[in-house]
Structure formats: C-alpha cells, structure tokens
C-alpha cells in the first residue's frame, strides 16, 4: 500500500526499510536551489522542510513540478519538539500531517530532539538527556504523530555540542530503544554521527554497530566546520572527505535505500553541488542523478 504512493521504484527495483523503494541519491529541496534540482535527470526523491509548506499558500510551483514528474517528496519536521517533556502542540501536529497529505508523501520524518521548553523557543534542535524518562517522552510523542499519519515515520538522531550529566544510556541504546518501542524507522544523518564522534572523542563508525541498520529509511549527508575546537554541523560548508568515508563505511555494512545531500545556506555554485551529489553516488554505489558531463 505504501509502495503505491511512493512513485517509481528505484533503479534496482528493491524494496528497502518499511516497504519503501530504493530511491538512491536525493537532495534537500530549498527554494534557492530549485532551478538546479529541477535539472537533475535521475532524481527520485527530495526532502522538504515540513514547516516551509504553508497551509494557506499553494505548494511552490517548482516542488509541485517535481512531484508531478514522479519525484517523491518527504516532509521533514523541525519544530514538533518530539523530545519535549510536554505533548506535541496539536496545531503543529495538524500542520505537519496536512503537509504530508498535500505532498502525497510516502514517508515523513522528524528529529529526536526538543526545540522549546517552559514556553521559550530555543531556535534550534537541542539534545535530550539519554534517560528512561526522555525515552518515554519521545515514545509518547512519536505515537501521537503515528496515530495521525498513515505513512511510515522516521526519526533522526541529532548532532550535539554538549551532553547531559544524567545520561544513563549510550546513544546506540537510546536510539534502539526508541525505534523498538515505536516501530519508527531511522533517518541516519552521517554528518551528525561524525560530529558527535569528533566532539565526544569517539570512533565515528562505532554507532553503526549499535543501531539497527536494517531500519534506516534514508540518510542525510551534510557539511560542517570546526569552531572553538568543536565540530559544528552547519549545512553551510562543504561535505568533508571524512563524511564521505563514513557513507562508504555505512554502505559496506548495510546499504540504506536512499541517501541525500542537505544544504541550508551559503549555496555554492552548481558545480560544487554536483561534486557532492556525485560523491554520495560514488560512496554508496547508487547511480549518479546529475546530468552526464561533457
């Protein structure tokens, strides 16, 4: 039933996690690079920030054109605050679900994080303490989303600049327990895995052995940079070679059905986006989605 909504199956026709097709290489759709994305002949999926789909406005024409040519569009929430101690605000949940319906999305995603507390907006995704109490909060809010959503839902562990003193579980245990209790899929951000490993002084590929890789719905690949001795997952810098190496290491263990480039500002010339998309294709073994070179 899910496959019916998912648009064309991937090049191999394989079905990945949650019955989703094998989409290969995709990209985060942003208005600033809509023209570039429109010119990607092999593209089978894009992700769009869910809150950018304004319920009072038409879907952006360039995004609708992609949808009409069979490219799957995955809404990616950033403001539900799944890890907040309080239940998700009903209006935000309603808008999230409405965006998924309007986009005829085969899949939707959000973060394992909180973005507000005590009535104050943090303005960014904040890490949770890895405690049983936080697992319970994530599980309760994920179930609220799943009750309203008739498509698979994937959760993304975030990049953390700091940790909480009350941590009881390893990151692998924390993620695995949430997935097991909710049945949610995993949106694995390889750049976040890299950032956390650098900032905690741990080996980056360690997490790959600690989470269920067969539950990965898709993968984020993004750039970042070092400031004040800390690696920041900026999405506005080039993807470092170490992150491409991690993509390869992940695919050697278990190749996910889809991987995408995430860029959120300081947009580079088209050539640089092409290099990074082709880099993901090379590291994963999926076919390139960019136009063939001269």
């Amino acid at each position: 039933m899910v496959a019916d909504k998912a648009g064309p199956a991937g090049p191999t026709g394989l079905i990945g996690a949650g019955g989703l097709p094998d989409w290969g290489v995709g990209i985060g759709w942003r208005p600033e690079i809509a023209g570039y994305i429109d010119g990607l002949p092999g593209l089978k999926f894009v992700e769009v920030v869910a809150e950018a789909i304004d319920e009072h406005l038409p879907i952006p024409a360039a995004l609708k054109a992609l949808r009409d040519r069979g490219v799957a569009v995955v809404p990616h929430g950033t403001r539900l605050s799944i890890g907040g101690a309080d239940p998700i605000e009903p209006d935000r949940l309603r808008q999230f679900v409405a965006a998924a319906h309007r986009l005829e999305a085969p899949l939707a995603s959000e973060h394992i994080a909180f973005v507000r507390a005590g009535g104050v907006e943090a303005g960014h995704l904040l890490p949770l303490p890895r405690t049983r109490e936080a697992v319970d909060a994530v599980v309760a809010n994920t179930r609220l989303v799943q009750q309203e959503l008739d498509i698979p839902f994937a959760l993304e562990p975030i990049a953390a600049i700091f940790d909480w003193p009350e941590d009881e579980l390893t990151e692998g245990q924390f993620i695995s327990e949430i997935l097991e209790r909710t049945g949610a899929l995993l949106l694995l951000d390889v750049a976040n895995v890299y950032a956390n490993a650098i900032n905690r002084g741990e080996p980056p590929s360690g997490l790959f052995d600690a989470v269920p890789l067969d539950r990965v719905a898709y993968v984020h690949v993004a750039g970042g940079s070092m400031h004040e001795g800390v690696y920041h997952d900026t999405h506005t810098d080039p993807v470092p070679p170490e992150v491409f190496d991690l993509v390869e290491a992940l695919c050697d263990r278990h190749r996910p059905p889809a991987l995408m480039l995430e860029r959120d500002g300081h947009y580079p010339p088209a050539g640089q986006l092409t290099v990074e998309l082709d880099g993901i294709a090379t590291a994963s073994g999926y076919p390139p989605v960019t136009p063939a070179g001269p």
Partner: peptide
C-alpha cells in the same frame, strides 16, 4: 523532572540564565 531540566537549559542558552547543574559551561 525532564520538563524542568529542559526549561533550565533553554533559559541558559537563550536568556542568559545560569548554567544548569552538572552541565559543561564551556560547551554551553
């Protein structure tokens, strides 16, 4: 509670409130 700890952290990051107990002030 989780709610209280989260509120403390957001206040420290956005409104100049004190660093919550046990957290690394440099990283915050």
């Amino acid at each position: 509670s989780l709610a209280a700890r989260q509120a403390e952290l957001v206040a420290a990051l956005t409104a100049g409130a004190p660093v919550p107990a046990g957290m690394d002030p440099v990283r915050l």
